[in-house]
């Protein structure tokens, strides 16, 4: 498995910043695993969480290049174990047997946060955990032949651990 690094980027909340950051990463051929962006408590700022596939040198290179953009306030490079990482998956699944339903129920123990609501014959899951945990869980659904009708994942958000 390749290494992953997490960039926490605080920018001005200005038009075009997302495009400047993402097009920079594209043209320098970085591999982006995930990119999320939202406002911070300060409505003049936005905060990006960017997950990069690559070694530490590449992550540092990406950070320096991003920091060079005029509207960037700060860039931090973190290893996965240096931060709290979460991703949300919404998955709408079709259940055809009690065993399958039991599997969904039993997953409570595995996933940090899980909501289940029924919509007719379908069950919608809202799952929150690390990307890896979510991958593993989705693989389990797959192996149990649970049909996934629709699904979406949010991309990773991260926050540095306290020392």
């Amino acid at each position: 498995m390749t290494e992953r690094f997490i960039l926490i980027v605080v920018t001005r909340n200005a038009p075009g910043v997302l495009s400047r950051v993402s097009s920079l990463l594209r043209r320098k051929l970085f591999n982006i695993d995930s990119l999320t962006v939202g406002r911070t408590t300060n409505n003049k700022e936005s905060r990006f969480t960017i997950v990069i596939d690559g070694d530490e040198a590449q992550a540092n290179k990406a950070a320096l290049l991003i920091d060079r953009l005029i509207e960037i306030r700060s860039v931090k490079v973190l290893k996965p174990d240096q931060c709290l990482r979460r991703e949300i998956v919404l998955a709408r699944v079709e259940i055809t047997s009690p065993e399958q339903e039991a599997l969904l129920e039993s997953s409570h123990a595995e996933i940090i946060s899980q909501l289940i609501f029924k919509e007719g014959d379908l069950i919608t899951l809202e799952l929150i955990d690390t990307s890896q945990k979510l991958d593993e869980f989705l693989e389990k659904l797959n192996q149990a032949d649970i049909k996934i009708v629709d699904w979406v994942r949010s991309g990773v958000i991260a926050m540095q651990n306290l020392e």
């Binding site: 040198a57 540092n60 290179k61 320096l64 290049l65 920091d67 060079r68």
Partner: peptide, 8 residues
């Protein structure tokens, strides 16, 4: 003057 040049 441009730190992104270092180690490039």
């Amino acid at each position: 003057i441009d730190s992104s040049e270092f180690n490039k």
